[in-house]
Design a protein around this nucleic acid. Structure first.
Length: 801
RNA sequence: GCCGCUGUGGUGGAAUUGGCAGACACCUUGGACUUAAAAUCCAAUGCUGGCAACAGCGUACCGGUUCGAGCCCGGUCAGCGGCACCA
């Protein structure tokens, strides 16, 4: 009587055995090579895990489990990125402390994660909202303050009208708040900023040294937006010089007018000279009223005002050209002013057409009457004095040298990346450890006063004025200046959610350290992260921010490596059954608890890996899960089929499967690794025979995917010890090959016969056999043999005429 | 507009990187077992024609290279993602 497979009974049993024995605790040191596997620690939301979470966790759990069996000292940690708005909003609505909500949510996430049998080292759990943790987040901030990388600045910021909070540029998507979808407006506010731009060059260049999937690199480079051009000085009739930045200095002879951003500071200086200053002011005011979204909307009619009273002088030909202000030029990029070359820039072309300005062709090859000719690769310089006849590339060099020589320009690299707005007017975040003193200015707290604890408040709601709720706590706000001892006020803004996640992987190395964010020894031993997997949505946020922090920590000697992550991969989303993104409102959400309850954690894990390419999105299908459960049932029944002996009954099949599973796991091709195991099982079922030795190997190969059932069978079949203490099976390349192979015989590419030949048969012999085949020989009669091809192990192709 | 990715049966997806397209699953259909259902097992399952062996067609579309193309090259179309008045 076969024993039924009941996951509900065996899964909790093994989960507690693993936990009690501490098999997954990573110990620093030893002879084994270390391997640091990292998943993005989750935000413990009130909804609990959805089926999207376990996909990357399982994917990397498989890597971690396999590497352990391969003799690596694996660190595979988990933690909680627990500061943030949803928790705070929930707390406001239900009148509970965010810390209490967080604790509840974490407990739920823990239980769910444990039920899926991930091999996390639970002893190294971190929590960004724990004062022992955020003490070090604040400490890093203080180091940045000392280094001049944290600064406060009055500037227009993105303001979410619904969250009543500023947002980083990276958090504004299509002019609306990434989180809540409300309108984002520009608001002038004094804000903490982090000078990520100081690292732009290195954040761009060092991507060459890491093993990230290409689309991540491309997206980061895109966001950093490096461009090489020239900064050029134009003299004006006002006497002041007007600086511009251009990536096309080669087209300087074609500059027929200038455009300044409406916010350009020279405008005010030129007030006495401008006959139409009222008009200029009105345009400025209109531009200021526009939201970011309106202003960057494309294809809209170009607008602008000509400055009446000041002209610029083209430095290469002395021509006097008009100056305009227009909101298509941004104050935040380059110098806030451009030279307009309508012949070779689409925006300038549109503007020139509207205002009837001259369009001069300086690069031949297009038709500037119908559109701007912007191609840099082809085209020859014309109407450009000493540049005539040169290619665009050569002209760029020649003109840059010319400008440099005369001191009116130089080569310049610019970035689209902006500094990081690093303050939020909300409660549930790390307090910025700074006081404002009337005498000493902005003063960082002494390190021994860290952590600066988040005080208890009555009300977490942001204030009407847009201040953080902390501003209402007079007792807390009023303090003494650590420098002069006089009265001072605390900073009331908190840090954005990205702060705690910018360095959490470092804390995993030494999570309980109270004297440093982690000990030097621990960092030297564990860093870098060998393999980091996470969502594409974090490419320009978390991934860029944490690289920046890490580089800073490297510069001040805290961490031993320039880059935090050696390898970065990304997983695709799990979509709803309807092919749409899972969401509550669509009602297509699948709860992993239900799946574990109905099929078991092993089936859930297996299905999520089998669903398709790990890197691509795939729709959930509740019918397909059954196939994975059936497979495990068949694995389960091996215990009743196995016969004595270690010898392989299916030798080549076994070795090939070991090879495929071993390689596929490393390539994150978990779906085909599972398929290979299914095929192997089909072969075994066809013959009805399997040896105990084969069962052992199969259990080891399957254990990273479905660990519980493998442990259980290992025990039931009395193989001794535990799967988790074994070694990963090896394979013999020579034994992967079949002795004989079936070869296709083609004539002119069409299959005509199949031959079973020894795998290593020589060409001449094989061809002779092929030509002698009864279905082939008659076709050759009377024809000319033009070509004979033999691909050993695959096919023979005879080309005849 | 720019950059990147993808397009394969009824469905999810494979294809050793130029060598038998559709592995592995799901669904469906038929059969076995059962009083019956579920589960399980067996068989069929790209499309078209034929009782059949078999033939023809087939990897978004058009063309090219090659003995041979899902894969390489040129062009077109569709979908997804990122960036976007960044000079």
């Amino acid at each position: 009587m076969p024993t039924p497979y009941i996951p509900k009974e065996i899964e909790p049993k093994w989960q507690s055995r693993w936990e009690e024995s501490g098999v997954f605790h990573a110990e620093q040191g030893g002879a084994k090579p270390k391997y640091f596997v990292l998943i993005e620690f989750p935000y413990p939301s009130g909804q609990g895990l959805h089926v999207g979470h376990p996909r990357p966790y399982t994917g990397l759990d498989i890597i971690a489990r396999k590497r352990r069996l391969q003799g690596y000292n694996v660190l595979f940690p988990i933690g909680w990125d627990a500061f943030g708005l949803p928790t705070e909003n929930y707390a406001i609505k239900n009148h509970v402390h965010p810390a209490a909500v967080t604790a509840q949510n974490i407990a739920r996430f823990q239980a769910q994660a444990k039920a899926l049998g991930f091999s996390f080292d639970w002893a190294r759990e971190v929590n960004t909202t724990d004062p022992a943790y955020y003490k070090w987040t604040q400490w890093i901030f203080l180091q940045m303050l000392k280094a001049g990388l944290a600064y406060k600045k009055e500037m227009p910021v993105n303001w979410c009208t619904s969250c009543r909070c500023v947002l980083a540029n990276e958090e504004v998507v299509n002019g609306v708040c990434e989180r809540c979808g409300s309108e984002v407006i520009q608001k002038k506010k004094s804000q903490w900023m982090l000078k990520i731009t100081a690292y732009a060059q290195r954040l761009n260049d060092d991507l060459d040294d890491v093993d990230y999937i290409e689309r991540v690199k491309v997206q980061q480079r895109n966001w950093i937006g490096r461009s090489t051009g020239a900064q050029v000085t134009f003299q004006t009739t006002a006497g002041d010089a007007l600086e511009i930045y251009t990536t096309r200095p080669d087209t300087l002879f074609g500059a027929t007018y200038m455009v300044m951003s409406p916010e350009h500071p020279l405008l005010e200086q030129w007030k006495p000279l401008l006959c139409n200053y009222d008009e200029v002011l009105a345009y400025k005011a209109a531009a200021a009223r526009k939201s970011d979204f309106e202003r960057t909307e494309l294809n809209k009619e170009k607008t602008g005002v000509r400055l009446d009273g000041v002209c610029a002088v083209n430095p290469v030909n002395g021509a006097e050209i008009p100056i305009f202000i227009s909101d298509y030029v941004l104050i935040s990029y380059g110098t806030g002013a451009i030279m307009a070359v309508p012949g070779h820039d689409t925006r300038d072309w549109a503007f020139a057409r509207k205002f009837g300005l001259p369009i001069i062709e300086v690069v031949a090859g297009g038709d500037i009457e119908t559109e701007a000719f912007t191609d840099c690769a082809s085209g020859t310089m014309v109407n450009s004095g000493f540049l005539n006849g040169l290619s665009v590339e050569a002209a760029k060099q020649a003109i840059t040298a010319f400008l440099t020589e005369r001191g009116i320009g130089y080569e310049k690299v610019n970035f689209k990346l902006r500094d990081w707005v690093f303050a939020r007017q909300r409660y549930w975040g790390e307090p910025v450890p700074v006081v404002h003193c009337p005498h000493c200015g902005t003063v960082g707290l002494p390190e021994e006063q860290l952590p600066l604890l988040l005080p208890q408040v009555e009300n977490y709601e942001p204030t009407e004025t847009g201040e953080s709720p902390l501003a209402l706590l007079t007792d807390w706000v009023n303090t003494v200046c650590p420098q002069c001892g006089g009265p001072a006020r605390r900073e009331t803004d908190t840090m954005p959610q990205w702060a705690g996640s910018s360095w959490y992987f470092l804390r995993y190395c030494d999570p309980a350290n109270n004297d440093a964010l982690a000990s030097k020894e621990a960092l030297d031993y564990w860093m870098n992260v060998d393999w980091y997997n996470g969502g594409m949505e974090h490419t320009t946020l978390h991934l860029l921010y944490s690289r920046f922090w890490h580089k800073f920590l490297y510069d001040i000697g805290v961490v031993p490596t320039k880059e935090p992550y050696q390898k970065r991969t990304s997983h695709g989303m799990i979509l709803g059954e309807d092919g749409e993104k899972m969401s509550k409102s669509r009602g297509n959400v699948v709860n992993p608890d239900d799946i574990v309850h109905q099929y078991g954690a092993d089936t859930m894990r297996l299905y999520e890996m089998f669903i398709g390419d790990f890197e691509k999105s795939a729709p959930w299908n509740s019918a397909s899960i059954k196939g994975c459960r059936r497979f495990l049932e068949r694995i389960w029944n091996l215990q009743d089929m196995a016969t004595g002996g270690e010898g392989y009954l299916h030798e080549a099949e076994m070795h090939r499967t070991i090879r495929k599973v071993t390689n596929d796991i490393e390539a994150l091709k978990h779906n085909t690794a599972i398929a290979a195991l299914m095929s192997l099982l089909n072969v075994i079922y066809e013959s009805g025979k399997v040896s105990r030795g084969e069962c052992k190997t199969i259990l080891l190969l399957l254990s990273p995917f479905a660990p519980h059932i493998c442990e259980e069978l290992w025990e039931r079949m009395a193989f001794g010890g535990r799967v988790t203490d074994q070694s990963w099976p090896g394979y013999d390349e020579a034994k992967c090959k079949e002795q004989t192979v079936e070869i296709l015989v083609q004539i002119n590419g069409k299959g005509k016969a199949r031959l079973t030949l020894p795998a290593d048969m020589a060409q001449g012999e094989a061809l002779a056999l092929a030509k002698a085949e009864p279905t082939v020989a008659p076709l050759l009669a009377g024809k000319t043999l033009l070509k004979e091809l033999y691909v050993p192990g695959r096919l023979i192709n005879l080309v005849i005429k």
